[in-house]
Design a protein around this nucleic acid. Sequence first.
DNA 1: AATGAATGAGGGTTCATTCAT
DNA 2: AATGAATGAACCCTCATTCAT
Lengths: 199, 199, 199, 199
Amino acid sequence: MQIKKEEVINSILDSAENEFFNLGYDKASMRTIAKNADTTLGNVYNYFDSKEDLFSKIVDKPYNMMQSIFRNHNSYSKGDELLEIKNIDAWRKELRSTLHRYLPMFTKPFVILIEGSTGTKYSHARDALVNLLAEHFHEHIYEYNKSYENVELAPVFAEELIDGVIKIVKNYDDINIQERLITEYVVFFAVGTMGILNN
Amino acid sequence: MQIKKEEVINSILDSAENEFFNLGYDKASMRTIAKNADTTLGNVYNYFDSKEDLFSKIVDKPYNMMQSIFRNHNSYSKGDELLEIKNIDAWRKELRSTLHRYLPMFTKPFVILIEGSTGTKYSHARDALVNLLAEHFHEHIYEYNKSYENVELAPVFAEELIDGVIKIVKNYDDINIQERLITEYVVFFAVGTMGILNN
Amino acid sequence: MQIKKEEVINSILDSAENEFFNLGYDKASMRTIAKNADTTLGNVYNYFDSKEDLFSKIVDKPYNMMQSIFRNHNSYSKGDELLEIKNIDAWRKELRSTLHRYLPMFTKPFVILIEGSTGTKYSHARDALVNLLAEHFHEHIYEYNKSYENVELAPVFAEELIDGVIKIVKNYDDINIQERLITEYVVFFAVGTMGILNN
Amino acid sequence: MQIKKEEVINSILDSAENEFFNLGYDKASMRTIAKNADTTLGNVYNYFDSKEDLFSKIVDKPYNMMQSIFRNHNSYSKGDELLEIKNIDAWRKELRSTLHRYLPMFTKPFVILIEGSTGTKYSHARDALVNLLAEHFHEHIYEYNKSYENVELAPVFAEELIDGVIKIVKNYDDINIQERLITEYVVFFAVGTMGILNN
DNA sequence: AATGAATGAGGGTTCATTCAT
DNA sequence: AATGAATGAACCCTCATTCAT
């Protein structure tokens, strides 16, 4: 019975994960979630208080991971000396090994958290991540070219960097391909920003 | 009387523009649109046949502009020799004058068309734009570095380029700022892609 | 101006007559009536208090005719000696001349009154006519065959006789064809009822 | 529970049958149906997909019966030799036994199908029936009196024959009375048409 | 623990009627 | 007299949530 119960819960969570992943919070349907979990609508409400609660249960893990990364994100800025590197392939190698640590975070629930949480109390999560990254860009810009006049692009870069990563994660299941493409995508951002700052 | 009528129509259009802008087509509420236009739900239907019709009235102008750009977009690729240019500022100047022609398209309605048209007959617009751009990236990649191994990034670049522009348009009303930032953002993409292809 | 006014009124009445004729009271649309009368919805209400009032103005003439016929309908039963007649062609001739007097009643407004008045205070008109005719049938039946066991058919005969006439009027505009077909249709009823009463 | 469910379904079906019977499809109100079924509007939609679906569930049985009769209605025309029979009572007997097979079709749902289906995909049913019968009349007329000059009456006869049957079904619930009256009504049509064709 | 029936608020839409001009 | 904008009640339908069993 103990086992049985967990089976049902997992079945619901799986079904919900798919639904939220495909449609986002607002357009997701509790009926569909129940149906694809091979259980009843009423029974879903025996295990989860509400649609929002169910969403929380799925999204909480990546949310907490993100929070803890935020708290000690100074460790992240160790890569700053990269800016000095002239050889792009060296960047690729360095970045790949750094990314490797974060890759486990890029799961379906993370994608849901970032782009499917509109309408929930988690909708700030995406903004927080964007802002954190935007700050980074901002700092780098300031550090590298104090007189650069298009600083407003920092949040744009941040957002599109994140969305690009999300897009790669959504489209490619194979973790190796993910790693290769995300690395290259981040290198692209590094090269691009360096380029416009250089001149 | 003539004036009165247009006032109401504009009031409805403004209200609808905001609603569609904030919520997208599907989640937008005709009741809310009416309320924010200081009129009655029934009266909205005196001026517009349906929700979809109201949406069309807002989105048609940027849609047609996009279509006409698509039809003669060969003129766009004339800028290919830019790739040879080493001086980034030259790129900036060239791109800025090119973008100048497209700037009138980048309005709130355009944003709605691109990211709020799910559920309408315009939902293909975003995809069409993304595909067109993705092809461009693809061609450039192939032209410049036949052995480049991360070609899968083309659609990602396309999508994030568009989303970045959208984000700029959303955040800055001043057309001059828009022009400056969009130009720089596109230059950033050019520099970035060139950089990763070069090595 | 006086003339102008009547023109508008007639235009509205004509348009309404068509609309009620084609759709019946309930499904008729005031908007459509106004449009087809080349005037405004609001203006229709300057001349007629309501949809029901407009309906009345169209249907009142045939209604009153019907009422006056009802009041002295004993004159109608003078044709009873027909029952003795064996020659059908004699019936045809006799009936045709009788019908001739009633033909002017079978106009579009009459049709509207009989089959398009559901939902109005005139909806009893049809029933009244049916009942009057049913009584006639009843009397004849009783007169001719006191032991006939299917007396309940009287109202059915009445209703179908009326509906048949209405159908002929609706489908044939030519008054001569109307006369020929209605006569024959009534003869058919006479022959039919006589036949089943005879045995 | 199983029982409870069927009770509600039947309650809704009954309520809907009455509503459609009284008002026809278009004017019937789902709210009224729900109210008269002692349930909620939303709950009606738990059992039936749409207004049209609910209508189908009521009308499908008589519709299918009608269709199967249409498919092998050649068996019907076998009674043609009846035309030679001079004894009306023989006709009565013969017709009654023929009608007996069709009687189960003549229910409230059948009435709804024939006169209340405007606005649904079943709206052709009445026309189909009328046309089939009109053809029959046409053939008989031609067969029996090639020079008869009022052939236009065929569709009128067809329509009024049907409407008469409908009227009987509407007014008499007792199946035996139905049988007696419908038989007599059809005999009346036979005698009537024979009479006018004979001369 | 599980069912699925029931609820109610909200969605888009139509239309007779009223009212200010 | 004429306009047509505005209203409000009713339409069909959806869906998260609750509740009795």
